[in-house]
Nucleic acid binder design. Structure first.
Length: 230
DNA sequence: CCCTGATTCGC
DNA sequence: GCGAATCAGG
């Protein structure tokens, strides 16, 4: 079914009457509700109060100022231009933000005593989560530290004579002892079995002959409660 | 789940 | 331009 002039007129009339898109579609016949809505849009007919938009208007009225970037809904994956949306959100808005919340100029006198004035400052959040400074609120530059002679830090006593990550090469055993992040975490450090990353002893742990299925033993319960799930 | 309108995007 | 598919609130 095509959009003849007559059908378009009927659509316009019913749309103006406030009939729902489904009702219009049913009355016209041969078209779906979506077809009616699409046609109405292309004709430039007035928007109807849509459930989606109604909520947005309320929110907009309650919070006229743009919400901080980190509180806005994250761009959905399906969005065709998520980058653009993020950039638009994060980009400084030279006309709005500073005008709405002017930062006190460095030379400006402090607020009059006895009356505490709280100014709400909207900031945009940068891609890394840092807070962008607004114009006119630069901090005084941090003075450079006085020059000092740099000396190597002493290793902590716990790992003073242990094999650390930096000590590893292809000739020493890389078998880890302890857990990464713990203060005494280190590596075996014995001479490696040539061609292997571990010493002979740890090669015996790391490499085991493949047994036929029927000969395999079920693995013993793990001492630490199973693999960590992150 | 149903309804609604808005929007997108392949045709 | 068309409209199905999809989204999102009621």
């Amino acid at each position: 079914m095509s959009w003849t002039d007559e059908r378009i007129d009927r659509l316009k009339a019913m749309w103006a009457e406030g009939k729902t898109a489904s009702a219009i579609a049913e009355e016209l016949g041969g078209v779906s509700r979506n077809a009616v809505i699409g046609k109405a849009h292309r004709l430039g007919l007035d928007s109807r109060p849509s459930p989606v938009k109604a909520g947005e208007e309320k929110a907009a009225a309650a919070a006229p100022a743009p919400a901080p970037a980190d509180e806005r809904p994250v761009a959905k994956v399906k969005d065709k231009a998520p980058i653009a949306a993020i950039l638009e959100t994060a980009a400084p808005m030279p006309d709005e933000a500073p005008a709405r919340a002017p930062a006190p100029a460095p030379a400006a006198p402090a607020a009059p005593a006895g009356k505490t004035e709280t100014t709400l400052v909207y900031r945009s959040i940068g891609p890394g989560g840092f807070i962008r400074q607004g114009p006119g609120e630069q901090q005084a530059p941090i003075p450079p530290a006085p020059p000092r002679r740099l000396v190597p830090a002493k290793p902590s006593p716990e790992i003073a004579d242990k094999t650390s990550l930096l000590d590893l090469n292809d000739r020493i055993c890389k078998w880890p002892l302890g857990h990464p992040g713990e203060p005494d975490f280190h590596f075996c450090g014995q001479p490696a079995n040539p061609g292997y990353p571990y010493c002979v002893q740890h090669c015996g742990v790391a490499y085991q002959a493949q047994l036929p299925r029927r000969d395999r033993r079920p693995p013993p319960p793990l001492p630490y409660g199973g693999p960590r799930v992150r």
